[in-house]
Simulated scan of single mutants.
Amino acid sequence: MQAEPRLARWLQRVEARLEAALPASDQSPQGLHRAMRHAVLGGGKRLRPLLVYAAGAATGADESLLDAPAAAVELVHAFSLVHDDLPAMDDDDLRRGRPTVHVAFDEATAILAGDALQALAFTVLAEETRAHDGLRVGWLACLAQATGAAGMCGGQALDMDGTGNALALAELERLHALKTGALIRAAVRLGALAGHADAATLAALDDYASALGLAFQIRDDLLDIEASSEQLGKTAGKDAAQAKSTYPALLGVDGARQALRVQADGMVDALGRLAGDTSALLALGRLAVERQH
């Protein structure tokens, strides 16, 4: 990430916006507010908000317009992690090197914290008065579609249905295109909408984001078998323990690495169709492919 100096500045911007959006921990109901802050402010790669800024930079967006969608997409991501970790879903007790929300607080508080974070995401977008009404509606529609049954929640349902079953490769790709990919595609589109991108630019960015989403998941699957819990900040080996279909399980480790290279090439090809500054998008693509946690 050091190769792209803007990323550090964008991280500071989104952290400040998240801090401003979240309720104070001493406000009632304190337990709920502390749980929300625990879920959001506990670190993380912040890939999705960085993609908002990078797509905005590639399309000439006013950077001040990007803080709200960057924060909103990260709030939705945090909500998804809180619910994904619940005993009824992936049942995990470690996230970003800390106890998951239902462990640090309790299961009911975790459910409510996730719900509240999702609502807060849309509030942040709706109240961004620097954006004109058409842009705000576009943002809201984009994030809503990526979050719901046609996106992330639908992918999570497919993941739960597929646990313990051997999925075909096409089924696995569809699952992750929804569960992981939908929010990544939304992050890129949120930034591009702020830059008034035309249809051809949006299509190229969608292709980039689709390749990035699959690359991110393939790398995640590889790390689950190659890295330790300390390196990952979450429980390693969970996929095998829960009998989940993964890219290494279907393709072998070497086949999964080859599939990762194919998606990396796809990102580069898609960005080659753009006329704007794609250096930050390229850097984030490399991060997804080469990350160690």
Rank of each mutant, 00 (worst) to 15 (best):
M1W: 09
A3T: 14
A3R: 13
E4H: 09
R6L: 12
W10L: 06
Q12K: 14
V14N: 09
V14A: 02
E15A: 12
P23A: 04
S25N: 00
D26T: 12
D26Y: 13
L32M: 05
H33L: 00
R34L: 13
R34K: 14
A35R: 05
A35L: 06
M36V: 08
M36S: 08
R37C: 09
H38S: 04
K45I: 06
P49Y: 08
L50R: 06
V52H: 09
Y53P: 06
E63M: 04
S64C: 05
L66Y: 10
A68C: 07
A71F: 13
H77P: 02
H83K: 10
D85P: 12
D85R: 11
A88M: 11
A88Y: 00
D90V: 08
D93P: 00
R96K: 02
P99I: 07
P99E: 12
T100K: 04
T100R: 02
V101A: 06
D106A: 07
A108S: 14
A110N: 08
A113D: 08
D115H: 08
L117W: 14
Q118R: 12
A119D: 01
A121G: 10
F122L: 05
F122D: 02
T123M: 08
E128Y: 11
R130F: 03
H132W: 12
V137M: 14
V137E: 12
L140C: 06
L143Q: 06
A146D: 04
T147F: 09
A149V: 14
G151I: 08
M152G: 08
A157Y: 15
L158F: 09
L158M: 15
D161N: 13
G162L: 11
G164F: 10
G164H: 06
N165K: 15
L175R: 14
H176E: 15
A182L: 02
I184R: 01
I184V: 13
I184P: 05
R185N: 02
R185I: 00
A187S: 14
R189E: 13
L190A: 05
L190Y: 05
L193G: 00
A194P: 00
T201L: 01
A203I: 01
A204G: 07
A209C: 07
A209P: 04
L212M: 14
L212G: 02
A215E: 04
A215C: 01
F216A: 01
Q217P: 09
Q217N: 03
I218N: 03
D220E: 04
D221M: 06
L222S: 02
L222K: 08
I225H: 05
S229W: 06
G233F: 09
K234L: 05
A236K: 03
D239K: 03
D239F: 04
D239T: 08
Q242S: 13
A243F: 01
K244T: 05
L250F: 07
G255P: 10
G255E: 11
R257H: 09
Q258K: 06
A259V: 04
Q263A: 15
A264H: 10
D265G: 15
M267D: 00
V268P: 00
L271Q: 01
R273T: 03
A280Q: 05
L282G: 01
L282Q: 13
L284M: 11
V289H: 10
R291Y: 12
R291S: 07
H293I: 00
